[in-house]
Design a protein around this nucleic acid. Structure first.
Ligand SMILES: Nc1ncnc2c1ncn2[C@@H]1O[C@H](COP(=O)(O)OP(=O)(O)OP(=O)(O)O)[C@@H](O)[C@H]1O
Length: 776
DNA sequence: CCTGTGAGAATTTTT
DNA sequence: TTCTCACAGG
């Protein structure tokens, strides 16, 4: 395990803050790993070192690596290694009382959050059709990521319908969270920051002894060294958290501004770019040698990323040689793409590349299904990352809800979730009555349920409620009797009749669910055995914080990896197959929408629209730079997604690839240039291309798929010339047999699937297959 | 109060 | 295509 001189310098630097800013595969992660090991070697106690990683898996890996490097000389378990969220949770678990959290507080995942927010909607009589609970939660999370509390938002008098609504609903949402002794993901960060900021500013209570010194102050002074990986994707609260924990620590952050891909989650590149300014005396070290990928791959990566504006720009070179060309493949549809992927995997396996060194990437989860299907058909095992995780399945979440309710009788969300699961005749009406009274008296649902008659719940229902409460009490007693966790879960499933109900159902689906439950009980048993001093709360925390990138594939170790590009961040594979490289898939349609709107309105891109597109481009850069030796890129001319057929045109990122590094034709390069040229000048000629295949339609669209191509309706005349086929442009006059003459306003697809959007004077805009129309 | 039906919506990316 | 939600009927 050696280091080059620049890396060595970063490892050895002491005495002032350090920023390592370097491109992909240059060994940033290796640097911080070595740095931590070196620190301990110098005698820094492990408990005085904090390392922040992006995923729990990365944390585990780093810990393992450091342990190996220290050869058992140091107790690595004393090190603090973790994600921002897990570190915050850890702090709050110990010291959360002053911000309103007990040591057993629950962490709400997205599903819990939505349920809770829906309840708020109901309580405040808001219509879910107008504004979605999700949207409010998104907005609220943005505020949290920026470190803003609702009080601050209101004090600032921030404008905007959404912001005001978020403040209103968010306030009640937060109240309910606290009442339930729960925190959502954003709260973990915000509350940890609040806790640390508060420490030491409060007046000592009268009569306080010296020994009463706030332990949180100790925490702020605890760390002598802090290292942070992937710093480019840090958001303001996270940066603040690091700052607060670095009171006396030397801070070392590493990252790559070209790999910032979490802007949508509030991450802010200016965090890393402004680091030197905020940290007096900061040292900046750049790493330029890439140890991961071969030349052609790197050239493709560079060709993609260089088109972003306002980059710092970085040199990147490799000694690994050119390596193989990057394969580019145009597929007819997504099924052919999937078959091609399988073939590529088979090829790799034949070359003795281990399956776990082969990865298939896609932009969105929805794209994975076809590929999974194809893999299954070929009897290939695969590990999929993300999507519906094990712990998000209904049956598991229900069981967790029972457990959480046992631990915290005030957890109304969990109460409502399972009070009638399995069906025990306690329906909406009953729960509604309980809720009304509970809200009125400001007590938990479970409390009200003890005297249902007071809530106006009648005989039969009341009786069932009594039974339910008795059951919960019984199980709660078991929890407090310290029954081993696995056994407790098993008893819960037994006693509540949950398992029986599923077994009784006897469907294929319910069988799978029973299996999942058994697996869950097994996992819990194992956890309890391995961590005898850990509580249920510890287990629940671990479960809530495992990320997509962590869990993955149910322990499928020796299997091909399937994942979104986001979860591929920080990883590397011998062979990467990057699929779905079409406009509107990647870059995602949501992002392109901004461009379309801008074009339609004849204005320039708004800064945030541009930022989004640049983020997609960085995402493409991340994808490409995960590959060590082989990179395959595919796109499909047609794609069925959400049960709708989409006509695909190759992604701009594909068209940016340098032809010399690619095997397979790089499509349509010219139009982009033409569109960008001033005065609508077009480039002299297209690169050599095969003669157009015989076409069923006489319309020439295949080189017009570019964004901005037909942007200017004012510019009459062809935007491009290709053979005899008429070239499309907006404003073109067209005739349809039935509707008569109209004006072309847009189009989609190519060949016989070319569809035209035409504005007819009488019937308005219609989308019609091109072969039913003729130009005038 | 439960369950089945049908319509309808919805689909970025994640801790 | 798949899941979710609302409503009607049992
Ligand atoms: N000095 C070195 N000698 C040999 N191999 C190295 C050296 N430094 C790093 N590597 C290897 O290069 C690869 C990339 O390293 P690492 O993951 O640390 O890079 P990174 O900068 O964090 O990458 P990224 O930002 O793309 O996630 C790893 O396989 C690592 O083992």
């Amino acid at each position: 395990m050696q280091l080059n001189p620049a890396q060595q310098a970063a490892v050895e630097h002491r005495g002032s803050p350090l920023l390592v800013l370097a491109g992909a595969g240059t060994g940033k992660t290796r640097v911080i790993t070595h740095r931590v090991a070196a620190l301990m070697d110098e005698g820094v106690p492990p408990w005085r070192i904090l390392a922040v990683t992006f995923t729990n898996k990365a944390a585990a890996e780093m810990r393992a690596r450091i342990e190996k490097m220290c050869e058992g000389k140091v107790d690595v378990s004393q090190l603090w290694v973790g994600t921002f969220h897990s570190i915050s949770a850890r702090i709050l678990r110990r010291h959360g009382e002053s911000v309103g959290l007990s040591r057993n507080f629950a962490i709400y995942d997205t599903d819990d959050q939505i349920r809770l927010m829906k309840r708020v909607f109901k309580e405040l009589n808001r219509d879910e059709d107008q504004v979605k609970p999700r949207a409010i939660l998104g907005h609220l999370d943005q505020l949290k990521n920026r470190g803003l509390t609702i009080d601050q938002v209101e004090q600032l008098g921030l404008e905007g319908f959404m912001t005001r609504l978020t403040a209103l609903l968010g306030r009640r949402y937060q109240e309910l969270l606290r009442a339930a002794d729960a925190a959502d993901f954003g709260d973990l960060l915000v509350l940890a920051v609040k806790l640390l900021e508060k420490a030491g500013t409060e007046q000592p209570r009268p009569g306080a002894q010296l020994v009463d010194v706030d332990p949180v102050i100790g925490l702020k002074r605890r760390f002598l060294h802090v290292v942070v990986d992937e710093y480019q994707d840090t958001n303001p609260v996270q940066a603040r958290l690091v700052e607060l924990l670095s009171g006396r620590a030397q801070l070392c952050v590493v990252g790559d501004d070209d790999q910032a891909i979490y802007g949508w989650r509030g991450a802010d590149v200016s965090q890393i770019l402004g680091f030197p300014d905020r940290q007096p005396g900061c040292e900046l070290i750049r790493l330029e040698q890439n140890y991961r990928s071969t030349g052609h791959i790197l050239r493709c990566a560079d060709a993609i990323i260089r088109r972003n504006e306002g980059r710092l720009g970085k040199t990147l070179w490799s000694e690994l040689g050119d390596g193989a060309l990057v394969t580019l493949r145009a597929c007819e549809d997504e099924r052919e793409e999937a078959r091609f992927v399988v073939n590529e995997i088979l090829d790799a396996l034949n070359e003795d590349i281990p399956p776990e060194e082969i990865a298939v990437f896609y932009r969105t989860h929805a794209q994975s299904r076809v590929i999974e299907q194809q893999l299954t058909d070929h009897g290939m095992r695969y590990a999929i990352f993300g999507g519906l995780g094990f712990f998000e399945r209904k049956e598991i979440k229900d069981t967790l809800a029972y457990l959480r309710l046992l631990q915290n009788p005030a957890s109304d969300l969990d109460f409502t979730r399972i009070v009638n699961e399995p069906a025990r005749g306690i329906g909406d009406t009953t729960v509604g009555r309980l809720t009304a009274l509970a809200a009125n008296r400001n007590v938990p649902l479970l409390t009200v349920a003890r005297n249902p008659e007071e809530a106006g719940v009648s005989g039969a229902a009341a009786k069932r409620l009594h039974g339910f409460v008795a059951m919960i009490d019984e199980l709660t007693a078991r929890l407090h009797a310290n029954v081993p966790l696995g056994q407790l879960a098993a008893e819960v499933l037994e006693r509540t009749g949950y398992r029986d109900a599923l077994v009784h159902e006897g469907s294929e689906e319910s069988e799978a669910r029973v299996e999942n439950l058994d697996e869950f009980v097994g996992a819990l048993t194992e956890f309890a055995q391995e961590n005898p001093d850990q509580t249920l709360a510890d287990y629940l925390e671990q479960v809530s914080l495992v990320s997509d990138a962590d869990g993955g594939g149910h322990g499928e170790v020796r299997a091909v990896r399937l994942m979104t590009i986001h979860s591929a961040k920080g990883l590397e594979f011998e062979k990467v197959i990057l699929t779905g490289m079409e406009e509107k898939v990647f870059p995602h349609s949501r992002v392109i929408a901004g461009e379309d709107a801008a074009r339609e309105e004849g204005r320039r891109l708004r800064p945030e629209e541009r930022a989004q597109i640049e983020e997609e481009r960085r995402l493409a850069y991340v994808a490409v730079t995960r590959a060590k030796r082989q990179l395959v890129i595919t796109w499909a001319k047609r794609r069925r997604l959400y049960n709708q057929e989409f006509i695909g045109t190759p992604s701009r990122f594909v068209r940016d690839l340098p032809p010399d590094s690619v095997r397979g034709r790089v499509p349509g390069v010219i139009r982009r240039e033409a569109a960008v040229m001033p005065q609508g000048l077009s480039l002299p000629s297209a690169p050599p291309r095969a003669p157009a295949p015989a076409r069923e339609s006489s319309w020439n669209s295949d080189i017009v798929y570019d964004e901005g191509a037909a942007a200017a309706p004012a510019r009459r005349g062809p935007a491009a010339v290709h053979g005899d086929a008429p070239t499309l442009y907006k404003g073109m006059a067209v005739r349809h047999r039935q509707y008569g003459e109209g004006t072309l306003v847009g189009w989609d697809g190519s060949g016989s699937n070319l569809k035209l959007a035409i504005n007819f004077p009488v019937v308005g805009v219609k989308t019609i297959l091109a072969r039913f129309c003729e130009p005038l």
